[in-house]
């Protein structure tokens, strides 16, 4: 019998969403285990998740210190070999600091910490973590102070071309407001991006918080089920 897909959830000092990811992935029937940021052995894991939180107190810049944790060199190697890596919120910030994803995350435009469920539009992308139809709208909570995505125009054009824009903030009907729909001021309403290959994905919203039907809804499930289905297909 084929074993279940196994997620590894990295804990940095200051991570605080790792239990949510463990709960969500186990609820969906997968295996998942914690990985301490000082560990360097990723053998046995099929996908790696960098969870949300405030690694190293967000000092210097969000994610700037965590990207040098011992585990990160292994996560980079894992990704280079095509292994799927997901960064949620602080995990996304760590991936941009590690230059595993383009751009950077600045302080929210309104200087306010934002905690609310927001509509997101699924774009046509190369991302292996999403198998939803282009234009689908999912409602997922955001919970951050530095989610204001920025990159230069040249990078944006390249990402559009390669299908690296995965999710955009939008209005409830999936349209984008002329003045922008991003509550945090993100450039071009960008909420989530992937690398060219599509195996490394970072997003500010928290899909793991909307996987349990008894709490908040299930709009976050497709992100975990699609990568698991892909991995199972590869193994099968």
């Amino acid at each position: 019998m084929r074993r279940a897909v196994k997620f590894g959830v990295v804990i940095f000092p200051g991570s605080n969403c790792e239990q949510d990811v463990i709960h969500a992935t186990r609820l969906l029937g997968y295996q998942s285990e914690y990985i301490w940021h000082g560990d360097t052995d990723l053998r046995g894991f099929d996908a790696i998740v960098l969870p949300g939180g405030f690694s190293y107190g967000d000092y210097i810049r969000t994610g700037a210190v965590a990207r040098f944790s011992p585990v990160m060199a292994e996560v980079a190697r894992f990704a280079e070999k095509g292994g799927p890596v997901l960064g949620v919120c602080n995990g996304f910030q760590i991936l941009t600091e590690a230059h595993m994803l383009p751009g950077a995350l600045l302080r929210n435009r309104g200087l306010k910490f934002i905690c609310e469920t927001v509509p997101l539009r699924v774009e046509r992308s190369a991302c292996q973590w999403v198998d939803l139809a282009e234009g689908a709208v999912v409602n997922i909570p955001i919970n951050h102070n530095e989610g204001n995505y920025i990159c230069d125009a040249e990078t944006l054009a390249r990402m559009e071309d390669k299908g690296q824009i995965v999710l955009r903030y939008c209005e409830p009907d999936g349209t984008r407001a002329p003045g922008g729909s991003a509550p945090n001021g993100a450039f071009d309403d960008i909420a989530g991006v992937c690398n060219e290959r599509g195996n490394v994905f970072g997003l500010m919203p928290h899909p793991e918080r909307v996987c349990d039907a008894d709490a908040n809804g299930t709009d976050g499930r497709p992100f975990f089920t699609s990568i698991a289905a892909l991995l199972a297909g590869l193994a099968g």
Partner: peptide
């Protein structure tokens, strides 16, 4: 240059 600075703008 060109990067929006939210605290500066405030």
């Amino acid at each position: 240059k060109g990067i929006f600075d939210p605290p500066g703008a405030t």
